[in-house]
Design a protein around this nucleic acid. Structure first.
Lengths: 209, 209
DNA sequence: GGTTGATCAGACCATCTGGTCTGTTCCGAA
DNA sequence: TTCGGAACAGACCAGATGGTCTGATCAACC
């Protein structure tokens, strides 16, 4: 694929993502995408065999960038901090910063959208969504397990339950944030979750000076 | 509106709800609804001026039943229990039971769906969704405030933050539950949230016997 | 028994939509 | 310089879709 061709493809995917997060996947027509991306119908069907093919490529493209971002946050935290708790707090903090920054704040989560419109998509696409969620939780499960191993939680919890709760709280926060038009709401949910973590894993009383 | 007319209207709304929660609002056509509800096009457009009118009536109808259900749970808990904590635990417990029971478990939340497809709807419909969320959180804010007044939390939190977190965790749980095909996931999120509450408001050590 | 309005049934229509097809442009390799 | 395929541009089409309209049915009420 030439440079130009790849550019068009990205333009289409980016436009489709924006539109889908505003009107739903079924709520946007191919013509809508063409207008938003500034490409012709010929270009579109050159890069995508069909609308269903767009759905598959879109979620794949979105998930790649998404997972890459998360992995970066984790790697940076692991490089900068010692100990699972400090790393987790940095990961969550960096994530909240992205949620708050108007430049990077997402309009919503594509996985959530696809989940709510699931019957439009075939088994392969649904599997991609489930796999993306699994990748998210897997990264957090690892970290939470390290924490539980390092320090017994104040209440019996599993790493998996904590990871699922974090993802839930973010997904739910994104919905509330849209419904109320309050951009910072999802970030606040993440902060609340940190509060839960601090109660679960209280810092050992440090020497005061 | 005669008995028969009202019945048809309900059949249409129920079918539309089911379909919307499976394919998204934009993902279902009027003909889909007709087939699912077993009514004619004439019947449909007798009860609904347009597709947009269906959207408005549907969310109104859904929200009415939803808020009524929540109010019932709260009233029952207030009648059966003394103290905000005991009432809250009963409310959450009853709610989790509904989430788990295959007979009453929702396929998803209509507010979430409407939020993710928001640009399809006019300002009035979006306001209805926001208002529904507000009604949910308002009920919980009251209860959480009672708890905070009765017992200082282990960490400084506001009643509003707790209420928003609960709603978030449920909404997110419903999404994960769909994506993974695990019916009990949302209920588990509510249970996790109860764990958070127990850490925030630890029971005073009781006399053991 | 006749009238009236609510409640439909379903043919019909204009528009929209996904997708096809033909022709054109452009760019790198030979 | 030529040539072949990638990368479009946009007219075109068949079917789907939202919505209209005419007429039928039926219960209630005078």
């Amino acid at each position: 694929m030439s440079r130009k061709g790849e550019q068009s493809r990205e333009r289409i995917l980016a436009a489709a993502k924006e539109l889908a997060l505003r009107k739903g996947f079924a709520g946007m027509s191919v013509d809508d995408i063409l207008a938003a991306a500034g490409v012709s119908k010929g270009a579109f069907f050159h890069h995508f065999r069909s609308r269903a093919d767009l759905a598959a490529q879109l979620i794949r493209w979105y998930a790649e960038a998404d997972i890459r971002m998360l992995r970066t946050l984790v790697a940076e935290a692991e490089a900068a901090q010692d100990g699972a708790m400090a790393q987790l707090l940095q990961i969550l903090g960096a994530f909240e910063a992205q949620l708050r920054d108007p430049g990077t704040a997402p309009r919503g989560c594509m996985y959530a959208l696809y989940s709510y419109e699931e019957e439009q998509f075939d088994e392969e696409v649904r599997a991609l969504v489930a796999e993306a969620f699994r990748a998210w939780t897997a990264l957090f499960i690892r970290k939470f397990q390290e924490m539980i191993d390092a320090q017994p939680p104040a209440r019996p919890v599993t790493a998996k339950a904590l990871a699922e709760m974090f993802v839930s709280v973010i997904e739910g926060g994104l919905i509330l944030q849209r419904a109320h038009g309050i951009p910072g709401l999802a970030a606040r949910q993440s902060a609340q979750f940190r509060g839960y973590l601090e109660l679960l894993f209280p810092r050992p009383p440090q020497a005061e000076g």
